[in-house]
Every structure is written in structure tokens, then in C-alpha cells.
């Protein structure tokens, strides 16, 4: 007996690959806007490629727009908002 697939219409979700392998987690939120990573930052309307994430060297992850806005303020002193270490973007994602 053999099962041959002719066509398969499936449904999937996309997730940012942020290293964790848990599937069922409710999803982490951006430390700045408290919106899930797979959502979009307050200034965006479309999630995903239009509102990407940014990985810090300190392993913290934010919506890119949120972080850039933060870094643009004087109070940021170019530090990660979570741990106050100097912000540097991690080049190698995951």
C-alpha cells in the first residue's frame, strides 16, 4: 500500500527565528513596546518584513523601529534599554 500526495493545502504560522525552539510559547514581547515580536511596532501597520526585529549583542531583541527610536533619544546614551550596556547589533542572527 502506498499513499501518494497530489496536492496539499496546509496552514502554517511564521515566527521570528530568535533562537528558542519552543513551539507553543505565547511568544515573547518587544521590551520597548510590549507587543509580541510577530506583531508590529506601534508605528507600523504590517508585521513581518515591514517591521523587522533587531538583535543586540547583549542577546536582547526588539522591534527595529522601536529600538532605533529609542537610540534616537538623548536619554538612551546608545545603550540597550534592558541592561544599559552599550548597544551593538549582533551580526549573526540565531
Amino acid at each position: 500500500m502506498k499513499v501518494t500526495i497530489k496536492n496539499w493545502h496546509a496552514i502554517a504560522q511564521w515566527r521570528w527565528d530568535i533562537g528558542s525552539n519552543e513551539v507553543d510559547d505565547e511568544g515573547d514581547v518587544c521590551g520597548i513596546c510590549r507587543v509580541p515580536y510577530e506583531g508590529c511596532c506601534p508605528s507600523c501597520k504590517m508585521p513581518g518584513d515591514d517591521c523587522p526585529l533587531i538583535w543586540g549583542e547583549c542577546s536582547h531583541v526588539f522591534h527595529m523601529h522601536c529600538l532605533l527610536k529609542w537610540l534616537g533619544t538623548a536619554a538612551s546614551k546608545q545603550q540597550c534599554p534592558m541592561d544599559r550596556r552599550p548597544w551593538g547589533e549582533s551580526i549573526v542572527s540565531s
Binding site: A12, Q13, W14, R15, W16, D17, V23, L53
Partner: peptide, 8 residues
């Protein structure tokens, strides 16, 4: 590369 699929 920055995304992955979770099947439903």
C-alpha cells in the same frame, strides 16, 4: 533566514 515556519 530570520523566520521559521510553525505548522498547524
Amino acid at each position: 533566514p530570520d523566520k521559521k515556519l510553525v505548522w498547524m
